[in-house]
Design a binder for these strands. Structure first.
Lengths: 216, 216
DNA sequence: CTATAGCGATCGATCGACCGATAGATGGAC
DNA sequence: GTCCATCTATCGGTCGATCGATCGCTATAG
């Protein structure tokens, strides 16, 4: 029975959400399968109708987390020419996902080490492919003279880490809206990259590049 | 016996180092006490001559990690007047420690959740006190018109997270020296904070603020 | 319309392995 | 002789995982 319950959540989905919450809160090793079953509202024996092993469950969440960044990230890169446009959209994607799907992002970022070698290798490959999108955008922007950073690789790591942190403190009823947070991270990113302010509409003043991001 | 062995490392120190390595690599919950004893070169029974419980061991490392940031951080704040000088020295401290003591930093940053409530509260208080040093410097700098950020709290989190990431990839025989890395992170920090380039000696050109940090 | 065979979902009970922690015996240093 | 360090052996509990039985639903044969 129960293809779906009154609330519209199937047991399989409840299992996945339960595991996600617990893995994000206590970590993979710190979470027992009995806790997962409890959180999902079923017994231990029933849990194993939905999962292969505990690690299968983690692996599925991991893939979901990484695919949710890599696939849209690739679309952005294909669709956007300028390095500046690319990095802006990559930051927006990264921050939004780390806020809206913060639990999945935490698990994706922190639990790679809990995978056994074969699966860990695949997860690392996905992560590396995603990071390469950022590095390429920053590298291109630097070569074109649009970005000015002390080192491309360091800037890549710095920006990725900075944007990932959102997952650990974001709350949907916090002081700032997600839009405001995203906008702020885009501004900080462009500032870190040493981008001249967009010469679109504003009166940039004679010297240019003044007080970007100040909130008077 | 063995107040110290030929290599100058006491058993107590070997135990602590073993736990540190394993906690950083596999996490607190993912590390068994038998692994710690093995890594320290003693048996399980002997291990308990040096530790109270497994959590005592984590707590000691935790305190060490946080004190190593908070105490020097407070000295910096007391000794340095300008927000800019403070943030530069805080970044240097944070990056150096996260590189040189990367394992301790990883444990300190990631394993707060593994502490039981009473100890966790104390650890969180230390972390908050440390973060407050950063926030105050950034806040002061913004109020004085020296920094220009979209939001003080967001900039604080962004910078702390960005600098903490160093612990996960730093290697003493990597491409860049620790000095170079530290210098780059200071530059990226000042850029993110929207600091005008230091008006000390250089020919800043008519427009000022050009290509800071570029390595031509 | 009814009887029943099949099937997916769930259950309680249990497996061997490993967990953190303790006890008691042994040995060497001073 | 005392004391600290270390050992071996073992404790009760929890871990991840599996088992066979049962439940309720559905499809179909008569």
């Amino acid at each position: 029975m129960a293809t779906h319950d009154p609330a519209g959540t199937s047991t399989a989905e409840r299992v996945e959400q339960a595991a996600l919450r617990l893995f994000a809160l206590r970590g993979f090793e710190g979470t027992g399968i009995r806790s997962i079953a409890d959180e999902a509202g079923i017994t231990l024996g029933s849990l194993y109708h939905y999962i292969g092993t505990k690690e299968d469950l983690l692996d599925r969440l991991m893939q979901k987390s990484m695919r949710g960044l890599l696939d849209p990230g690739r679309e952005i890169v294909e669709a956007t020419e300028s390095p500046r446009g690319r990095i802006v959209k990559l930051v927006e994607l990264h921050v939004r996902r780390h806020a809206e799907d913060n639990l999945l992002s935490i698990v994706g970022d922190a639990e790679i080490r809990s995978l056994t070698p074969a699966r860990r290798r695949k997860a690392v490959a996905l992560r590396d492919a995603y990071e390469a999108l950022w590095e390429e955008a920053i590298s291109d922007g630097s070569r074109q003279g649009d970005f000015h950073v002390p080192d491309v690789k360091l800037a890549t790591f710095a920006l990725l880490e900075m944007c990932s942190g959102v997952a650990y403190w974001y709350s949907s009823n916090g002081r700032l809206s997600l839009d405001a947070i995203t906008k702020a991270f885009v501004e900080m990113t462009l500032s870190l990259l040493g981008v001249e302010p967009l010469a679109s509409k504003p009166d940039a003043g004679p010297g240019g590049r003044l007080r970007r991001g100040a909130h008077p």
